[in-house]
Write a protein that binds this DNA or RNA. Structure first.
Lengths: 333, 333
DNA sequence: TCTCCGTGTTGAAGCGCTTCGACAGTTTGA
DNA sequence: TCAAACTGTCGAAGCGCTTCAACACGGAGA
């Protein structure tokens, strides 16, 4: 193993000088700096992470608790994780992946000085981990929005606003009876924060706009078709539909199109992180969930905190409506 | 921060005794052990990971390079990762998630003593990272099977055997013209090891059994339908079909069923990690890709290496055919 | 009785790094 | 011209832990 002493000897300087060259915390003459950097390159030196964290009390690692359980939309999670990893790297941080064995993993990583900060995904409205995080006294960011007072910084897509946006769009198109087909029952029961908020936004907007709106959890598999079918059959008056369930989308798209076959005025909006695939279903209007951007913003936020900057307590990424071109899109597919 | 000295003082022993109680590397009297453990619990002591790794030259962290890029079947990756994380924890290891910026991340983690071992996913037949890994001189396991000499231990699902198994099954049912609809073009072009191997097994088995077999990469989206359609239309003689593309499955299942509508003798096998969803497509015969088990085995393998045990150089998880009940399944859905 | 051995415990060295205070040597300001 | 202020470098302490050599002690064998 190449140590800092090896580099110092090679460059003819002291170890502290090498350290200062690497960190830039003290002025170093150009000549010395070059010699040291050349020595580092020549020897292929990499500082020992453990030694560094011991001396500097910082690890350059961020703990990320991602939900690996079922019932969540896995591809979305992956996109967020990818965004986090990639952006954290830009700031020189690595990611320690903590499994979702709830609070224990967080405590271990934090107390054991394995990480400089924690990033927590898949937050529930009343999340049991919140108490642990609070007493851990470690910079943390939640990806998700728990209910109540916000002592911990949060970031998320603004699902509530997305609900409003969808309703406004559908009402603007003339629909007066709306339905939201959302996350699976299991997700709802856990009161996963995003599902709750989407429903709230959707229902509040319906009330505000004076239209009827109903919400329906559906499985993220083929079984969704039966449930959607039942809802639409029971109430043929529903003409405006919002779907937030990427897993179910392939199975129910045909049924929904058959229900409201208007080709020019879209009646179904999808809230999804996979815009590309939508075209294929003949669904063209999309509210994109910017999953990767969310991960990147979360990483950015926590890196800013670690860099000592101030930070907003709650950051919500605004929804944007992407209106497609129905006819062309259907031909494309 | 609670340190080992705090614990030692609290328990009335020396720091080395505390250390030996934790590691079990020296005999300690029951009385002393209890006192130390009580002190640890009382103070909520957790050893500093960096200090530990500095002194012991081991981090209890495994680096995992997972493909976060597109074109891979994301849910499968997630399942493997989940298996790895969970099983590594059982052995007391955490997972450092390395992005796929190829060799650089591996070198950084390894040379910087951030990890005790490396686990590399999404291996290509001629993988550029292999050279780096070899010179890193760090315990490593590949999840996937590169071509050529095996200097690095590998583990994977036996896709080649799965190809044979599928062919044998379809031939056994009387089919003489087989088609494999597989991974997207992009995956093929990278020569991702599993895709290559499945095709090889499939074609070799076809030749051995004296039947005609063709292979077709298809997109993992709705566009797959057009390509499948083209193939089946061009050659109506194809009656035995193997699909290995979970993304495309929902879109093409109907078309395939329409092509060979026999309800009692299954004509389409799916190679998939999501058995449950299959029923819904009326496809009942499955060769399961045990994604989570694969991750677990990989973790097990590398932990065994780290524990100093001998290890098999190549480990392939055998495929298993799951024959469903067509009629009942279709009703269920 | 004395030596030898095994058991349980300790002190101290050292892992590789960062950082503080000190210190030469060079400018600058009065 | 001399003190004050920089600039660039170094020595040494110390981060929290593991582990080695040493040692105290009681029991067994001679």
């Amino acid at each position: 193993m190449v140590t800092i002493s090896d580099v110092a000897r090679e460059a003819g300087v002291s170890t502290s000088t090498v350290s200062y060259v690497m960190s830039g915390k003290r002025a170093i003459s150009a000549d010395t700096r070059d010699r040291v950097q050349a020595a580092i390159a020549r020897l292929g030196y990499r500082p020992h992470a453990g030694a560094r964290s011991l001396a500097s009390r910082s690890t350059r690692v961020i703990g990320l608790q991602a939900p690996l359980r079922t019932g969540v939309d896995v591809p979305v999670i992956m996109q967020v994780v990818a965004g986090v990893v990639q952006r954290a790297r830009v700031h020189g941080y690595d990611i320690l992946l903590l499994s979702s064995d709830e609070a224990e993993g967080l405590a271990r990583a934090s107390r054991g000085s394995m990480v400089d900060a924690l990033l927590i995904m898949d937050v529930e409205s009343e999340d049991a981990r919140l108490a642990t995080i609070a007493e851990l006294d470690q910079p943390s960011v939640l990806i998700g929005l728990p209910a109540g007072r916000r002592s911990i910084p949060c970031i998320d897509f603004d699902f509530e606003a997305a609900g409003w946006l969808a309703v406004d769009r559908l009402v603007g198109l003339g629909h007066t009876r709306l339905a939201l087909f959302g996350a699976p029952e299991a997700v709802m029961e856990r009161h996963t924060s995003y599902a709750d908020r989407l429903i709230r936004g959707f229902l509040e907007a319906c009330e505000a706009r004076g239209v009827e709106g109903s919400t329906h959890p559906i499985p993220d598999s083929a079984e969704a078709l039966a449930e959607v079918d039942a809802v639409l059959t029971a109430d043929p008056g529903i003409t405006g539909i919002l779907v937030h369930n990427d897993g179910a989308l392939p199975f129910i798209a045909d049924r929904i199109r058959a229900h409201v076959p208007s080709a020019t005025a879209p009646d179904c909006l999808a809230l999804t992180s996979r815009e590309g695939a939508l075209r294929a279903h003949g669904l063209t209007d999309t509210i994109a969930v910017p999953a990767e951007a969310l991960g990147e913003s979360a990483a950015e936020m926590i890196c800013a905190m670690l860099a000592g900057g101030a930070h907003p307590s709650v950051q919500l990424l605004p929804p944007e409506l992407a209106v497609g071109e129905p006819s062309r899109a259907r031909i494309d597919s």
